[in-house]
C-alpha cells in the first residue's frame, strides 16, 4: 500500500500548508485560534473574522487553482507525450484570460458570462496553439519543442491583446490589473463560489478516464490496439483539462507553472499511471500554491507580492531546468 502512504504524505503536506496559510499573515494567528475560528466562530473576535472572511477564501482559491492546474498538467503531459505541456504553456490560461477580459470590457458580462467566456477563451487559446504549430509546419508530433514554442507564441499574443484591452478602460483598469497578473486574493471568493463545480467535474472526468489516458501515453496506435477510442478519449480528457484550467483562470487570473512543474515532482514517486499521478498531483499542486501564496505575502513584508508573479518566478526557473534536463543536456533523449 505504497500509494496510500504517498497520498497520506501529500495530504499531510497540504494540511501543513493550509495551517501555515491560515495562521501566517500581517498579524500571525495561532493555529489553535484558527481552528477555533473554523469550528466555533466568535463574532466578536477580529482574528476569527480575518481567518474566515479573508484567509480561508484565499486559501480555498489557492487550493482550487493548484489542484486543478496540476491535474491538468499531468493529463496534458500524458496525452501529448510532451514533458513541457501544461495549461499555461499551451495557451489555455492565456486564452481564458483574454476571454474573461473581452466579456468584461466588451460586454460588461456578469459572473456566469465571464465564466462562459473564460471557457470559450481557454478552448480557443488551446486550438490556436495547435493551429500555430500546424501552420508553422514544424511537424505534427506533439512530443517535440515546436508545440511548446507555438504555445509560448500564442500565450504572448493573447497576453498582448489582453493588455491592450485593459488599457482601453482607465476606470476598470486597476480592478483587473492585479487579476491579470495572477492574484490569489480573498475578494475573488464569490468567483470560487460560482465556478468550483467546473473544477470538480473536470477532476471526476479525468479520474474516470485515468486508465485510457495512461494508455494513450504509450502511443496512439498502441492505445487503439489495446481498445482505447483514442480520439474520443483524448478529446474528452483535453476538454476536461481546459474546463478546469479556464475556471481557475476565471477565478484568480493566470496562475502559471503549477501545471508544468508539479507532475514532474510527483511522477518519480507515484509513477506515470494517472490513477495515481492525478490525485497526488492535485494534492501537491494545492499545497504548492498555498505555500507560494504564503511566501508571496510574507517574504517581502510589509509589501505583498502577487502569487502569480511569485509562481512565474519560481516556475521560470523550473522551466529552464526542465528544458535543460530534457533537451539541452548532453545525452538528453529528445
Amino acid at each position: 500500500m505504497r500509494f496510500a502512504g504517498t497520498c497520506g504524505a501529500a495530504l499531510a503536506l497540504l494540511l501543513a500548508a493550509a495551517v501555515a496559510s491560515l495562521s501566517l499573515g500581517a498579524t500571525p494567528i495561532a493555529p489553535r485560534e484558527v481552528l477555533r475560528a473554523l469550528v466555533a466562530f466568535d463574532a466578536e473576535s477580529v482574528d476569527h473574522f480575518v481567518v474566515l472572511s479573508q484567509r480561508l477564501p484565499r486559501a480555498l482559491i489557492a487550493v482550487y487553482a493548484g489542484a486543478v492546474l496540476a491535474a491538468g498538467g499531468a493529463v496534458m503531459q500524458g496525452i501529448t507525450g510532451n514533458p513541457l505541456a501544461s495549461p499555461s504553456t499551451l495557451g489555455v490560461s492565456a486564452g481564458a484570460m483574454l476571454g474573461m477580459l473581452v466579456s468584461v470590457f466588451g460586454f460588461g458580462a456578469g459572473l456566469a458570462g465571464q465564466g462562459g467566456a473564460a471557457l470559450a477563451g481557454g478552448f480557443g487559446g488551446f486550438a490556436l496553439t495547435l493551429a500555430v504549430a500546424r501552420l508553422t509546419g514544424l511537424g505534427p508530433d506533439p512530443r517535440g519543442v515546436p508545440l511548446i514554442l507555438s504555445g509560448a507564441l500564442t500565450g504572448m499574443l493573447l497576453a498582448g491583446v489582453s493588455g491592450t484591452l485593459l488599457l482601453t478602460d482607465p476606470a476598470r483598469r486597476a480592478e483587473y490589473l492585479s487579476w491579470l497578473a495572477g492574484n490569489i486574493n480573498h475578494f475573488y471568493a464569490d468567483r470560487l463560489a460560482v465556478f468550483w463545480p467546473l473544477g470538480l467535474a473536470s477532476g471526476l472526468i479525468l479520474l474516470a478516464l485515468a486508465r485510457p489516458l495512461t494508455l494513450i501515453g504509450l502511443g496512439r496506435e498502441r492505445a487503439e490496439a489495446l481498445g482505447v477510442p483514442v480520439r474520443r478519449v483524448s478529446r474528452a480528457g483535453l476538454a476536461a483539462v481546459v474546463l478546469g484550467a479556464s475556471s481557475a483562470t476565471a477565478i484568480c487570473g493566470p496562475v502559471g507553472f503549477v501545471g508544468l512543474v508539479v507532475p514532474h515532482l510527483v511522477r518519480p514517486v507515484t509513477g506515470a499511471h494517472l490513477a495515481r499521478l492525478l490525485p497526488v498531483s492535485a494534492l501537491v499542486g494545492a499545497a504548492l500554491c498555498l505555500l507560494s501564496d504564503v511566501l508571496a505575502r510574507r517574504a517581502f513584508a510589509p509589501f505583498t507580492l502577487h502569487t502569480g508573479v511569485l509562481l512565474d518566478l519560481v516556475g521560470g526557473v523550473c522551466f529552464g531546468t526542465l528544458v535543460y534536463r530534457l533537451y539541452l543536456r548532453p545525452g538528453a533523449r529528445r
Binding site: T214, G217, G219, T270
Partner: peptide, 21 residues
C-alpha cells in the same frame, strides 16, 4: 507494433496491467 513509445516512470507491472482495458 514495430516501435514503441516508452513513457518515463511506468513500471513493467503497470504496463502489463493496462492490457486489461
Amino acid at each position: 507494433p514495430q516501435s514503441s513509445i516508452c513513457p518515463d516512470h511506468l513500471t513493467v507491472g503497470e504496463l502489463v496491467e493496462l492490457a486489461g482495458f
